[in-house]
Amino acid sequence: MKKVQGLLFALFITVLALAGCGGNEQEKAGTVATTAKKDTAQQEAVQFPVTLTDAVQNEVTIEAKPEKIVSLMPSNTEIAFGLDLGEQIVGVSDFDNYPEEAAKKEKIGGMEFNVEKILSLKPDLVLAHASSADAGEAGLQQLREAGITVLVTNNAANFTEVYETIRLIGTATGKKEKAETVIADMEKKVEEIKTKAQEIKEVDRKSVFVEVSPAPEVYAAGKNTFIDEMLQIINAKNTVTEEGWPKMESEAVIKSNPEVIITTHGYYTSEPVKNVISREGWQNISAVKENRVVDVHSDKVTRTGPRLTEGVEELAKAVYPDIFK
């Protein structure tokens, strides 16, 4: 090209033309993106007003898409962030630690939330939770009387109820489509794990004891809890036959002789595994003898939000490490 000046000129013109085309394409892309944003905003606006029945059977009408949201429960916060509502969240509970952005939000208290603090944030919507709705009813009523919409989500005991909560929050905030996407992703992950677990032969199924608090008062995951459902998904047997979250006596655990013991309290006990294996009489339990005591991420297996599927995966790896690598 150095020898032919005409070719250089032609190349220069070509580059300019391509640059011009690139600019036009960028303009077009920008226009498409802007149009898409407008379309999304219009779709969200069409969804309101909306009337919903919440977990305590209150009929709640939301007139317009909430711009400022306060969440009183970590699970609701995780769901809201999962629905891309991070910018709308203005206040969270003292226990909120995920995602990282949640920790930077204004804190409104713990189980006993600060009504005055919430009022000062001027939210359009407060996401409460059925597990604390009775204890906090007086405060919630104050918020309602101040003109703030309060929506109580259910105290989910299984994946179906978690999906219901995600749909409820999605509908209340104009994120119905995003909610369905989140649910579909969770269902897909659960199904993948379940399919892989079905390959485990009956003779190889493990019996598992899941404790959610350490000695001296040991509480465990019983029947009809989401942890019990997780164990079913990974094709493991729950050694706890009681309903809910029963307090367990050492003799009963020793007698059930679990092959794997899972703890979920490592976030506040320094040595959860040592806590288990050092208990009197537990040395003869199969899980202890075979070094099958594992601590898993508490929030992922106990917080009823989008990360529950990660919790299922952690449980699967803890119980069947050779299969779920």
Results as ranks from 00 to 15, higher is better:
Leu83Arg: 03
Asp84Pro: 00
Asp84Thr: 03
Gly86Lys: 11
Glu87Tyr: 10
Glu87Gly: 07
Ile89Tyr: 03
Val90Gly: 11
Ser93Asn: 01
Phe95Ile: 00
Phe95Gln: 04
Phe95His: 06
Tyr98Glu: 13
Pro99Glu: 13
Ala102Trp: 13
Ala103Val: 08
Lys104Pro: 00
Lys104Leu: 08
Glu106Leu: 06
Lys107Asp: 08
Gly109Met: 14
Glu112His: 09
Glu112Ile: 10
Phe113Val: 10
Asn114Asp: 15
Asn114Cys: 02
Val115Phe: 12
Val115Gly: 07
Glu116Tyr: 11
Glu116Leu: 09
Glu116Ser: 12
Lys117Ala: 14
Ile118Arg: 10
Ser120Lys: 07
Lys122Pro: 01
Lys122Gln: 14
Pro123Lys: 09
Pro123Asn: 10
Asp124Met: 10
Asp124His: 05
Leu125Phe: 11
Leu125Gly: 04
Val126Met: 11
Leu127Ile: 13
His129Gln: 07
Ala130Leu: 07
Ser131His: 01
Ser131Lys: 02
Ser132Leu: 10
Ser132Arg: 06
Ser132Trp: 10
Ala133Ser: 14
Gly136Ile: 03
Glu137Val: 07
Gln141Lys: 15
Gln142Phe: 06
Gln142Lys: 15
Gln142Asn: 13
Leu143Arg: 02
Arg144His: 02
Glu145Gly: 02
Gly147Leu: 08
Gly147Cys: 11
Ile148Val: 15
Ile148Cys: 06
Thr149Arg: 13
Thr149Lys: 13
Val150Met: 12
Leu151Tyr: 13
Thr153Trp: 10
Thr153Cys: 14
Phe159Asp: 01
Thr160Gly: 12
Glu161Tyr: 11
Tyr163Thr: 01
Glu164Leu: 01
Thr165Cys: 10
Ile166Ser: 04
Arg167Ile: 01
Leu168Asp: 05
Ala172Gln: 09
Ala172Phe: 12
Lys175Gly: 00
Lys175Glu: 15
Lys176Glu: 08
Lys178Gly: 03
Ala179Met: 05
Glu180Gln: 12
Glu180Ala: 01
Glu180Pro: 00
Glu180Gly: 00
Thr181Phe: 02
Val182His: 01
Val182Leu: 08
Ala184Arg: 11
Asp185Lys: 13
Met186Thr: 04
Met186Glu: 06
Glu187Pro: 00
Glu187Val: 12
Val190Ser: 03
Glu191Ser: 15
Ile193Arg: 03
Ile193Pro: 01
Ile193Gln: 06
Lys194Asn: 09
Thr195Asn: 13
Glu199Thr: 15
Glu199Gly: 05
Lys201Arg: 12
Glu202Asp: 15
Val203Ile: 11
Asp204Trp: 06
Asp204Arg: 04
Asp204Pro: 03
Asp204Ser: 09
Arg205Phe: 03
Phe209Asp: 02
Val210Trp: 03
Val210Arg: 04
Glu211Phe: 08
Ser213Ala: 15
Pro214Gln: 12
